[in-house]
Structure formats: structure tokens, C-alpha cells
Simulated scan of single mutants.
Amino acid sequence: MKKRIGTMVAALLLSGAVARAEMVDRVAAVVNRDVIALSEVEKRAAPELARLGSAVREPQKRAEERARLLKAALDTLIGEKLMEEQIRELGLAATDAELDTAVSDVKRQNNITDDAQFERLLSGEGFTVKSYKEFLRNQMSRMKLVQIKVSPKVKVSEEDLKAAYTQYTKMESEDAEVHARHILVQVDPKATPQQVEAAHKKALGLAEEARKPGVDFAGLAKAKSEGPSAADGGDLGFFRRGVMVPAFEKVAFALKEGEVSEPVRTQFGWHVLKVEERRAVDVAPFEQVKNELETRLKMQKTEKFVEQYVQELRQKASVEVKL
């Protein structure tokens, strides 16, 4: 009797502990026998969730977007769990020797000469040495699985390459390079809203001044810009899409030759842009970009086949989503 009472007490204590654990960290999904906690999902979605806070102001839309981001992160984690089961079954986990070699390669590629420097690099990316090695081992193990189950299906034909080159030439010929100058009014990252607005007003005044007939934009930039290019009259030279920060690039490629923009906000402050010249981009010949196109197509097809493979695993597995 005492033994039974003791068992009952233990069971009650255990159920209480489980209840408290659920209150602290909800279960987002159960994949066969593996549990995915909500905290794992939130951690995986953290970068996108952080951007969401500043990008979407309306509460309902923010809630809907948050739910979408969490679902996408959960789907990714479910896929990884299913692949991990296959890795265990097939004995494909990366060995300690393979991991050590990979870590040495990372250190060599980043010119890292000592462990303290390596720890600082990882810390800047949100890793400890232990968590990074775990992350790297998982990545390497999944790559082994992909090489066996997916890579043999990935084929890129000459017709695929020529079709990709046709699309490439169309995109390149429609694009252009712009030669721009800018005047920067710096804003400290910790600036108050009042300081940001004061800098904005200053930038508005500079934009108005730059548009006056006969004003030399380069001379104005030399005199008033607070950026490192001020000495060169704010000259940024020619650049293509994908080089500048998105907000800056969007305005630069929308301006006509000789046109001066309204102030544009980036992490550096407020910019007033002027496009000096636009020119067409020369399209590289097929043989020159063939290898790059092949690599890109293989990556795209591999991603597609990996998604199909994960869906096949999911159909055969017991997956209970609780999010």
C-alpha cells in the first residue's frame, strides 16, 4: 500500500513538473518521438521576427505575419528532425575527425590563428564554440544525406543552361549601372527622434539647395557632406544593383540623369543623391558564365528535390503540429 501511495505521489509530482514545463515552454510539434519546443521555433524565426517589429505597424497584420513566420520556421525544424532520423538510421552523422577538419578549414578561410580569435568571431555571430560545432556537424550530416538521397536526381542539361543564359541576358540588358554622388547627414544609431528629425530637416535644406540652377553638386558635397566620400565631392562611381543598401539603391535606380532625390534614410543617416550618368551593362558571353549558371541551377534543383524528399518523409512519419 505504501509503495502504491509513493508511486501515486511520484506520478502527481511528475505531472506537476510537466505542467510547469509546458507553461514555461509550449510544445510546438511532435515528430514521431521527438518534441519541438516553441522556444526552438521562436529562436529559428528570431531574425525575421525582429525585422517584423519595425516593418509592420498594424497589430492584426503583424500578428498574421508573425504566425506565418513561426509556421515557416516550424516546417523547417520538422524537416530537419525527419532528416536527422534518416541520418541516424543510415549512420551518416559527421565524425569527430570530419568535424575537426571542417573547423580547421573555417579558421584558415578566415585567417584565424588562435582559439581566442575564433571564439570572438563566433560570438559575433551568436555562437559559442560548442554550439557552432553542433550546428556545423548537423549541416555536414544533412549534406551527406542529400548527397545520397537527392544529388543523384539533380541533372542540368545543355538546354537548361541555354534557357538560363537567355533569361540572364534579358535581365542584364534591361538593367544598368548608375554613376551617383551623395551628400550625407549623419545620424547616430542612438539618436533621439528629435535628433533624427533635425537631421532630416537639414537634409531637406541641402536637397533644395542642390536643385537650384547652377549649383555644383560635387562642390556642395565637399562643403556639406558628413560622409567619407565628401573629399571626392560625394562621388560613388558607377555601381550595379545589389551593391548599395536597399533603400539607397531603390532611389538611385529610380532617378533620371541629373535628378536630385529627396532625403533617403539608411543606417548611416540621411542621404541626398544625384545621378550623374546611366549606362547599359555589357552582357558576358555564354562560355564565360556557363559554370556559374550551372552551379546556380544545381542549387535551385537541389533545393526543390530536398523539399520533395522532406515531404515524402513527412507523409510516412507521425507529425502532430500543436502551434
Score class of each variant (00 low, 15 high):
63 A>E: 15
24 V>T: 09
78 I>M: 06
45 A>M: 02
82 L>S: 06
25 D>E: 06
84 E>D: 15
91 G>S: 00
5 I>E: 06
45 A>F: 08
54 S>E: 12
88 R>D: 14
34 D>V: 04
92 L>W: 05
38 L>V: 00
81 K>D: 08
34 D>K: 12
90 L>A: 04
51 R>T: 00
18 V>N: 14
59 P>V: 06
84 E>H: 05
71 K>W: 05
22 E>Q: 02
93 A>F: 09
6 G>S: 11
70 L>E: 01
17 A>Q: 14
31 V>S: 08
43 K>C: 07
89 E>D: 13
66 R>H: 07
92 L>N: 06
76 T>L: 01
54 S>M: 12
56 V>Y: 03
89 E>K: 15
26 R>I: 04
90 L>K: 12
74 L>M: 12
14 L>K: 06
69 L>F: 10
7 T>N: 08
59 P>T: 09
82 L>N: 07
80 E>H: 08
67 A>R: 15
51 R>P: 06
32 N>Q: 12
67 A>I: 01
60 Q>M: 11
32 N>F: 04
7 T>E: 02
42 E>L: 03
41 V>C: 00
86 Q>K: 12
21 A>L: 15
61 K>T: 11
85 E>R: 10
24 V>S: 03
79 G>Y: 14
54 S>R: 14
53 G>T: 01
13 L>G: 14
79 G>M: 13
17 A>F: 14
56 V>E: 10
52 L>S: 04
51 R>H: 05
49 L>D: 08
28 A>I: 01
71 K>Y: 04
